[in-house]
Nucleic acid binder design. Structure first.
Length: 602
RNA sequence: GGAGCCGUGGUGUAGUCGGUUUAACACGCAGCCCUGUCAAGGCUGAGAUCGCGGGUUCGAGUCCCGUCGGUUCCGCCA
């Protein structure tokens, strides 16, 4: 049995609040923590004492110790106290089944107030409802809540599982610079002015991409890092200006090995954090399949509602909206909302907004009636064969709501993809207890940017084309597939990576496809190209969003809940009030003059 | 850059459509009572000129314009 004598947890504690149970009965214990709540009955005072490890009820009884009792009368919420007392079994009927320590309580023999607290700006037990800006301003108080501590603990355990896993597989954790060089492409950089080099700037890394490739050139072969990355772009619930990646790179490898290694990591993380056994190998979809069937490159597979193409059925239809869209090279696709025929008309009308916001001209729809006929405003334009063909293609049954979009391929896919998500949410089709992993493979290598009238790398310029598609880089760049892969979980992109280009002639073709001369490429990435002149091994890797992974493990909707000190949507830190103005002397030293109207502090 | 939602004592909300009363309720807070509570209970009390600025009006928490902050989404971003 544990006693204060043979085990002392922390200098000021013999035990942790949350660990006490019937086995400790009779022990004299020394506890320390925060007053979660005080219940003063006049002649008897109960205090729920909280530390990181749990809560225990302490009873102050004047018959046991008068001084402790009198001191307890002055306690307020969130005072920090040290208590000595005896663990006793609660009287029959007085147990609290809602408390892990609810079978016992601690009869206080002494009480010392270690520090006092003003009333909190918000009640910790109601913080879920409190305006988030207040929680962020007093983040250190918000983080006292067990729910928040649970998220941070989950994050810690995730990191430990990741490190243990990679360490056991001969990976080396290597740090890369935070002050580095701005490279074009990708996101906006956070810049850091140089004092020693007037007018020059470092950039904070968007990711350690180039460094980890250099480490492969160096022959480290297996690298990982849990690393902070910075992107100065607009924020979302799952995007912060600084975020953490699990970054991985391997030499002498291929896509299959990387996927296999990562599936092992995921399995390890889920097992050691939430005790869930996920079952690799995870299913795979090509990018094309994902876009065609789910209208998204990160499909949520927790529900069905697939997109169905009916172009061939209506290509020659008398309904010009359909036939002309196809004549112009577009498609007609739809969703079969099972049983959706009973939706109120108002709800159905709202669906049109979803697709028009995605660029579609409108939404056509119809309801399958009991007899199997189609009730729709467009039915009169369709032949009997066409109706039969549509019903057959969409596996329609009486009571179903059928929705169609006629548009260019990309627009139709995105519009129906969003409609699918909207309906999945609205009709409660999503199984909240399910974990649907999927690898998206065979990404396009390049993407046409109509404004700049050139191709851009979908992933980044060092992504290797599919071995069969190298020549396409020259003949038809838009058709080339990349050796890239993303892992998606429940409709959220967890991570992505690729096999990299390690041969000079392929890299040059890539730059050419991107409309970049060798001189330009050298000016931008010279250090990497130089390195690749000295025996670069074939290599590839992947990077994961740690914040998103922990968010999903914690069952939260925002990564802010899994970051100790996050920023707001406008990238403010409400706790420190960063970013802030700096002294004019600091700017002078950095050779910086600001054109902003806001005054600079003297 | 754009769209939606939110901003009323310390906290969460009601009041906003239909303009005018001592701005209501719950939690918290303070004092008193209370020896078995655990969202303790009872009594008493303090505390908000309604994010900020301007406008309309006899009169604005309420209507209009602007602005600030938060949030969700689109654009943007691996």
């Amino acid at each position: 049995m544990d006693t204060a004598k043979n085990r002392r947890q922390q200098t000021m504690k013999s035990h942790r609040c949350g660990e006490l149970n019937l086995a400790h009965c009779g022990c004299m214990v020394e506890l320390a923590g925060w007053v979660q709540r005080r219940r003063d009955h006049g002649g008897l005072i109960f205090v729920d004492l909280r530390d990181r490890f749990g809560v225990v009820q302490v009873v102050f009884n004047p018959e046991i110790d008068k001084a402790a009792f009198l001191a307890a009368e002055k306690l307020r919420n969130e005072f920090v106290v040290a208590v000595k007392g005896q663990v006793i079994k609660r009287l029959p009927g007085m147990e609290n089944p809602n408390l892990a320590t609810g079978e016992i309580e601690v009869a206080a023999h002494s009480l010392e107030v270690l520090s006092e607290s003003k009333p909190l700006p918000f009640q910790l037990d109601r913080a879920e409802d409190v305006d988030e800006s207040l929680r962020l301003r007093y983040r250190y108080l918000d983080l006292r809540r067990p729910e928040m501590q649970r998220n941070l603990i989950l994050r810690h355990r995730t990191c430990q599982a990741v490190r243990n896993y990679f360490n056991e597989h001969d990976f080396l954790e290597i740090e890369t610079p935070m002050l580095t060089r701005s490279t074009p492409e990708g996101a906006r950089d956070y810049l850091v002015p140089s004092r020693l080099h007037p007018g020059a700037f470092y950039a904070l890394p968007q990711s350690p991409q180039l460094f980890k490739q250099l480490l492969m050139v160096s022959g480290l072969e297996r690298y990982y890092q849990i690393v902070r990355c910075f992107r100065d772009e607009d924020l979302r619930a799952d995007r912060q200006p600084e975020f953490t990646q699990i970054d991985v790179e391997m030499s002498f490898t291929d896509r299959e090995e990387i996927i296999h290694i990562i599936e092992g990591m995921i399995r390890r993380v889920f097992r050691e954090t939430i005790g869930l056994e996920v079952q690799p190998p995870f299913p795979r979809l090509t990018y094309r399949e994902a876009m065609d069937k789910y209208g998204s490159d990160k499909p949520d597979l927790r529900f069905g509602l697939p997109i169905v193409d009916i172009s061939s059925v209506v290509a020659n239809s008398g309904f010009k909206v359909f036939s002309q869209a196809i004549a112009k090279g577009g498609v007609v696709r739809g969703l079969n909302v099972k049983g959706g025929g009973s939706l109120p008309r108002r709800e159905i009308d709202l669906l049109a907004n979803v697709v028009t916001e995605a660029g579609a001209a409108g939404l056509a729809w119809g309801i399958v009636e009991a007899g199997g006929e189609l009730r729709s405003s467009i039915a009169k334009f369709l032949s009997a064969e066409e109706v039969a063909g549509i019903l057959n293609a969409m596996a329609a049954e009486p009571g179903d709501l059928l929705c169609w979009v006629a548009a260019p391929l990309a627009v139709a896919a995105t519009a129906l993809g969003r409609l699918r998500l909207y309906l999945g949410e609205k009709l409660n089709l999503i199984d909240r207890n399910s974990w649907q992993f999927v690898w998206i493979v065979d990404w396009p290598l390049l993407e046409w940017n109509p404004e700049e009238r050139r191709y851009e790398a979908l992933h980044h310029p060092f992504t290797s084309p599919h071995p069969d598609d190298v020549e396409l880089l020259v003949t038809d760049p838009g058709k080339a597939r990349a050796q890239a892969y993303d892992l998606v979980l429940n409709g959220i992109e967890l991570g992505g990576g690729s096999i990299r280009i390690h041969r000079r002639e392929v890299q040059e073709k890539m730059f050419k496809a991107l409309g970049m001369s060798n001189e330009e490429a050298y000016a931008r990435f010279g250090f990497l190209l130089d390195a690749f002149d000295y025996g670069p091994p074939p290599h590839g890797g992947i990077a994961f969003g740690l914040d998103r992974l922990v968010m999903l493990l914690a069952g939260r909707d925002s990564i802010r809940d899994c970051i100790a000190f996050p920023k707001t949507q406008s990238a403010m830190d409400l706790l420190t009030q960063a970013p802030a103005q700096v002294a004019a002397s600091q700017l002078r030293e950095l050779h910086i003059r600001t054109v902003a109207e806001a005054p600079v502090q003297k």
